[in-house]
């Protein structure tokens, strides 16, 4: 229960920060923002597995679609699949407290996420200049996301540990 409340709070906060404070800061960084929601979904995919990843992805995406989409479901699907795939591939196969591989996963994941966005939102509308979008949107976004991950991922890790010790303590109490 506490975990669910924590998740709701983080999704909420990530979304709000991404659309407000980071936008203001981003207007000084060639108008780009780090993808906090992706960072959140990927982090908990690695920490807690595919189911947590996909549920967090579902709700993060739904929130994005609700506020900024002209129809619901696009980002819902995208975030959900990324959360699921990262969970399936990397949960329990990478050490969550070995930061370098985790950041590599987040970097590659965000780049792939940007690529899928490009294909679905731009390539399908005959915007063929891939190199430009790669150099001016996808890679800078990846760098920002990883830079923020350096600060936020340890916090997520810490939060997960706190919740886990809390849960195991409560479980013991009941036994």
């Amino acid at each position: 229960m506490r975990r669910i409340i924590a998740y709701i709070l983080i999704v909420f906060l990530s979304f709000l920060l991404q659309t407000t404070v980071f936008q203001t800061i981003g207007s000084y960084l060639s108008d780009l923002v780090p993808n906090l929601l992706f960072l959140l979904v990927a982090s908990f995919g690695i920490l807690r597995g595919e189911k947590t990843g996909l549920l967090l992805g579902f709700f993060s995406g739904l929130m994005t679609d609700l506020v900024f989409g002209s129809y619901l479901g696009f980002y819902t699907l995208l975030f959900m699949f990324f959360g699921f795939m990262i969970g399936i591939l990397f949960y329990q196969s990478v050490e969550p407290d070995h930061f370098l591989p985790v950041f590599a996963i987040i970097a590659c994941g965000d780049l792939l996420f940007g690529f899928v966005e490009y294909v679905l939102l731009f390539l399908l509308r005959t915007r063929f200049h891939f190199r430009f979008y790669l150099l001016h949107v996808m890679i800078p976004e990846m760098i920002y996301t990883v830079a923020v991950a350096v600060l936020l991922y340890p916090f997520y890790l810490f939060l997960d540990e706190v919740l886990q010790t809390d849960e195991s303590r409560r479980a013991k109490k009941f036994v």
Binding site: E50, L55, L72, G73, T76
Partner: peptide, 21 residues
């Protein structure tokens, strides 16, 4: 299991796309 959840929620999302668009 996660994959069924993924399947169900994907259907939900696709339904949402179709309904809302």
């Amino acid at each position: 299991p996660g994959k069924y959840l993924l399947f169900i929620l994907s259907l939900v999302a696709v339904a949402l796309i179709m309904i809302t668009s």
